[in-house]
């Protein structure tokens, strides 16, 4: 029997890098969003989801950004977990192209004074976009550094004016049965649900990302809008979000439902609390040979440790 698909050498993978570098150089040199869109569109068709349709302008830098070297764009867009498109790392890049992202609305509802259905274009006009270069640590033991483009989740929350009953925020990802081949796998229940405590959601590090590497978010990375919470394991960052609901009770997330003994609500990066089946003490940064030590709260302890003061993090994993 034949097994390993991961090692298949696709001709497109061999040429991709050079093509990609040329394209990036071109974008930098020209800085013309419209032109780059057509160039990228011509070069990236079929196999991988199309990226680089639009380059964001007027994005400010952030003191929260790390100075670490970002992961290569190719790795960050071809090695993904987005189970709605399949459980292999290359499935999202392969199949996410079918995802329909226009038109896109984001519903903000629940325990808020100002519920609203946002057209994504309107939302982007309202929010100040920033570049946030964050570490991303996957629960599986690998990590990346990704320059996101997004806005503080807190800005959106303040606009919605949560009521006194709002204690948690639930994030619902899109469910498109015709376009998501992974939905049929008996792995997770869909739509994908994630959640944060209100104070976690309000924390200035929590963002909703709409782009990465200066460009609009590729579909396999959660276009058109996704959650990024850098001190938590990557799966906490729900992709392609359609609904944000403010609730009184702790939401049951997709991974909690799938395996409650392995995935807790908090899922903070913590080298001292192992996954029941594997160690979390180290991680492999994509692009590096040697493993590195995993940092408490993924290196954001100074900013976020206070959120969990007095809590037993082994129990609240």
């Amino acid at each position: 029997m034949l097994i390993k698909r991961a090692t298949d050498i696709q001709p497109s993978e061999i040429t991709d890098r050079g093509v990609y570098l040329q394209r990036r150089a071109f974008i930098r040199a020209a800085g013309l969003a419209v032109l780059s869109a057509s160039a990228a569109g011509a070069l990236y068709t079929n196999r991988s989801a199309r990226a680089g349709e639009k380059v964001f302008a007027g994005v400010s830098k952030s003191p929260f950004s790390t100075t670490e070297e970002p992961t290569s764009y190719k790795d960050a867009t071809n090695y993904n977990n987005y189970y709605e498109f399949g459980t292999d790392k290359d499935s999202p890049a392969r199949y996410a192209g079918k995802l329909k992202i226009k038109p896109w609305t984001l519903m903000v509802e629940g325990e808020v004074k100002k519920p609203r259905i946002w057209a994504i274009e309107d939302l982007l006009k309202t929010m100040a976009l920033q570049e946030r270069i964050y570490r991303m640590r996957c629960v599986e033991g690998w990590s990346m550094v990704i320059p996101w483009v997004g806005f503080a989740l807190g800005d959106l929350i303040r606009q919605a004016e949560p009521t006194g009953k709002a204690k948690f925020v639930e994030f619902v990802s899109v469910y498109q049965s015709d376009n998501m081949p992974g939905l049929r796998l008996p792995v997770l229940s869909y739509p994908y649900i994630e959640g944060l405590r209100l104070d976690e959601a309000m924390h200035p590090l929590s963002i909703l990302a709409v782009g990465m590497y200066g460009e609009v978010l590729p579909k396999q990375n959660g276009a058109p809008i996704r959650l990024v919470v850098p001190w938590k394991y990557g799966f906490k960052g729900g992709k392609s979000i359609v609904r944000i609901r403010f609730v009184e009770r702790m939401p049951q997330t997709a991974w909690m439902k799938a395996s409650p003994s392995e995935y807790g609500f908090y899922s903070n990066v913590n080298p001292a609390v192992d996954h029941p089946r594997w160690s979390q003490a180290k991680e492999r940064r994509i692009g590096e040979f040697m493993k590195r030590k995993t940092l408490m709260f993924n290196g954001y302890a100074d900013q976020v440790a206070g959120l969990y003061a007095g809590m037993d993090l082994k129990k609240n994993f």
Partner: peptide, 22 residues
């Protein structure tokens, strides 16, 4: 694949999985 760098973003994982499944 190792020499041509075509084992993907996480080559060590790819080698582990390939040798394991074989």
């Amino acid at each position: 694949g190792a020499f041509m760098r075509t084992l993907g973003a996480n080559p060590i994982e790819a080698i582990t999985h390939s040798t394991g499944t074989w």
